[in-house]
Design a protein around this nucleic acid. Structure first.
Lengths: 123, 123
DNA sequence: GAACATAGTACATTTTTGTGTACTTAGGGA
DNA sequence: TCCCTAAGTACACAAAAATGTACTATGTTC
């Protein structure tokens, strides 16, 4: 029971705060490619061109945008080497590695219920 | 090492299949409100109007759409009582409960790194 | 001195999502 | 008789996300 802005007392059946922490996490992960990028970076340092090649069917603009957002949220790190042609490496930060249990849980669910995609589509 | 469609052998540094299972799960969870709906259904059977009231700031059309998608994906169950005015109850299926570890992992991350929202915003 | 490579940016356009408004159903109450 | 309720649907519209195309930088190689 709690006093609200309107002066009345109300019983709060749910505490929404847990939900807000989920929303916070969701914001970081929202984006068509972010799970894939994070998954690909798991345990590796990768160059921009490798990520691009791995994901394949996305434009440079999209990739750059997703990477910038992940960097802004502090889950990946960007290391620029001052060479020509440019070389930039991406890796997970410690915060980023803390997202891995989420990916693992998604993988577990997907393995239990998902269909295997056509193998040739991977080649 | 594997023979590809183009006839060449290639070394596959990554096996993408795990990533596809993540994509499968992501598809089920994509949608502005789905995490919230699932979270709210955790351990409870809820009426349409309760879900609407809980989420607050979304239209009937949006809510119906999200619920239909979750039902189609088999993660929630819809039970209609033939009364007037209508009564419809939603609950998690067993498949739906298997998504909970994902929400839990997101909550853990959010608790570690998220800021608490202004408490008054919840009232 | 022209072309190549990598890692981008800028901007217009398309696609995907989400929203707002109006409408429906049928029994019970004023 | 008319309005109320809960749980929707239908459709046009707006906002957000993703995409495609063109462009940039600069040291090295041909």
């Amino acid at each position: 029971m709690r006093v609200c802005k309107d002066g009345f007392q109300r019983e709060f059946i749910e505490d929404k705060s847990d939900m807000y922490t989920i929303a916070f996490t969701q914001n970081i992960l929202s984006g068509r490619w972010k799970y894939f990028i994070l998954w690909y970076l798991k345990g590796h340092t990768r160059r921009y061109s490798d990520i691009k090649a791995f994901l394949g069917d996305l434009s440079q603009g999209s990739l750059s945008k997703q990477l910038r957002e992940l960097e802004k949220d502090g889950v990946i790190e960007r290391k620029v080497y001052p060479v020509v042609p440019p070389k930039v490496e991406y890796s997970l930060t410690e915060k980023g590695t803390k997202l891995m249990p989420i990916l693992d849980a998604m993988e577990t669910f997907g393995k239990a219920y998902g269909e295997q995609p056509d193998d040739t589509s991977l080649v």
